[in-house]
Design a protein around this nucleic acid. Structure first.
Lengths: 316, 316
DNA sequence: CCCCAATTTTGTCCTGGACAAAACCATCTA
DNA sequence: TAGATGGTTTTGTCCAGGACAAAATTGGGG
């Protein structure tokens, strides 16, 4: 029941765990092995980290998620870390927001928390290209750009939250005013317990709902047992799971296998997101959605295979 | 880099931490002190908890949040725990959803994951009574009812998620289609880092936006330093924070005080939610919003005090 | 070039002691 | 009767440092 240094100066190990997502045990073992971070101690011998420590740890965590080895990063000097960041900048995925999206302007709007500017951008894109293109050609690439800007230190945590919040609001709002008569399949959307990013889920929901599928989202962080019972009670045809890049492949495989075994064969499992590795497709009855843009194709395929031809025709 | 027993049978201590929100250290010290939970060990001597352990831990956590002492609960037998649950049932807050809301039907709809039924309920309430009443007279009491049903074991985790998800979708959707020309004040909405419930935030946002205020929500879990910089860059007039009942008063006081000290006097701080204790009002420049229904009053008061009389009149 | 085994790296778990903050309780005062 | 005060118990978090299994990398063969 220690103090929790909610304040600005020095932070306890719990606070750092919250801020960075790095478990206490990991922070301690890094200090033991690599000498970083090296917090001072209070009168009681407890670690007190600085704000700089936290910022550097956040950066390191991002880079680890990108595939860098912890040993390298933790031994690196400030300058070496900068060099890695530069390298990362170039190596970024070749995907960019398509023509007409002034990336710099978007970043500037996010930086000054400009709600109307972002809403306008989305609204315009919606009118010009439609909902599905908004998601696959604007939001998806923007996510990548923003992740990269974060690594370069051009955006902070609150800016990222702000962006996420705005996108979610807009998509949910649009979804709400866009009810088509519901048709099969019934899709249950969620993520496994250690995956807390719900934006991908919402993007998929938008793509599916646009095609008239019946979506039921449980939000992120759902225990496996509960996914199973929910899928059964809601008579779902498909369970859709989202994985961010940081999700350990091993764990994804284990989780999806277990879930697969516990659901009847009539229920399909779809996995998507940056962390949805090809190998997941190796499990029978599991489909990997490579790019968000392909969701409608996957849906059409499901309908062709599972529905009588007549009702498929009626949907178009 | 241990396995994580994502599966159904036995769970590692990490998995239990995720599922229950109880830190590993606490789980171990409870075992040492009270003899519960008492997990078996695997070949490597590591704890393996059963599903029953987890369910009981979840219940205990809820009861602790309600004010019960851990020692009592952990020493209690299954029967005693049941008796406590019964007692809790009666002691529940006297607030109930107002006339016309068939609580049992709502619970049933949630239990069978019935999206259309819930949407209908909200839609009807919206048309009959308006957005603000929907939030304060339907959603707010429903939250209480559902929390109680959870304690009694009548609802599970996924049902609660499902409900939250539906409410958020509906509110966000309505909000999106309800843009009035923006007027002062500018309000920044968020929660402190250890508070992850964002529904209250959204409810406040709805109340404020209905009155034409300019809201900028950062979502939950925002570090204090970031709240400060965000408030300054977005030129906020008010920072609104939400606290759930489980939030330790001590920590709320410390956090709000620190924030207060770091913001200029021209920025008001509003705190609300079940965890917003009266004592927070003792801090100068901090207002406690007792019930969600009083948000419009607080807003009117702010406008009367801070805006020229003419522009206040123009808003009505 | 791909696949398998040896090796290194890395994160998580363990024990048991310590202690400060919070909650509780009994007492005293206005 | 209500509220402040101080002592006691309860409770959550921290620490050290050893251990080890899973993941990633490397180094051969086929």
């Amino acid at each position: 029941m220690k103090h929790d240094a909610n304040g600005f100066g020095r932070m306890t190990i719990s606070a750092v765990e919250r801020e960075t997502g790095l478990p206490k045990d990991t922070l301690r073992v890094w200090e033991r092995r690599y000498g970083f971070p090296q917090p001072v101690r209070d009168e009681a011998g407890e670690r007190l980290y600085t704000l700089e420590d936290v910022n550097r740890l956040r950066l390191i965590r991002r880079l680890i998620d990108q595939g860098w080895r912890p040993g390298k990063l933790l031994a690196a000097s400030e300058a070496e870390l900068q060099r890695i960041v530069e390298a990362e900048r170039g190596a970024g995925a070749p995907v960019r927001p398509d023509g007409g999206v002034p990336t710099d302007e978007v970043l500037a709007a996010i930086r000054r928390h400009d709600v109307p500017a972002l809403r306008d951008l989305f609204q315009r894109s919606l009118l010009e290209r439609g909902l599905q293109a908004l998601v696959s050609d604007l939001v998806a690439p923007l996510n990548v750009v923003i992740g990269e800007a974060w690594i370069r230190g051009e955006l902070g945590v609150p800016e990222e939250h702000f962006y996420t919040e705005q996108v979610q609001s807009f998509l949910r709002g649009t979804l709400a005013s866009y009810t088509r008569p519901a048709a099969p399949p019934r899709v249950l959307l969620t993520t496994l317990p250690e995956e807390e990013h719900g934006l991908g889920l919402l993007m998929v929901e938008v793509m599916l709902a646009s095609e008239g599928a019946q979506c039921c989202s449980l939000g992120p962080r759902m225990p496996l047992t509960d996914i199973r019972t929910s899928a059964l009670t809601s008579a779902a045809d498909i369970v859709a799971l989202s994985f961010s890049a940081a999700y350990p492949l091993r764990q994804a495989l284990a989780g999806v296998r277990t879930l697969r075994d516990s659901l009847p064969d009539t229920v399909d499992i779809w996995v998507g997101g940056a962390g949805a590795h090809e190998r997941l497709a190796g499990i029978p009855g599991v489909s990997v959605i490579g790019a968000i843009r392909t969701v409608p194709d996957a849906l059409a395929e499901w309908r062709a295979a599972r529905l009588p031809a007549a009702s498929v025709a009626a949907l178009n």
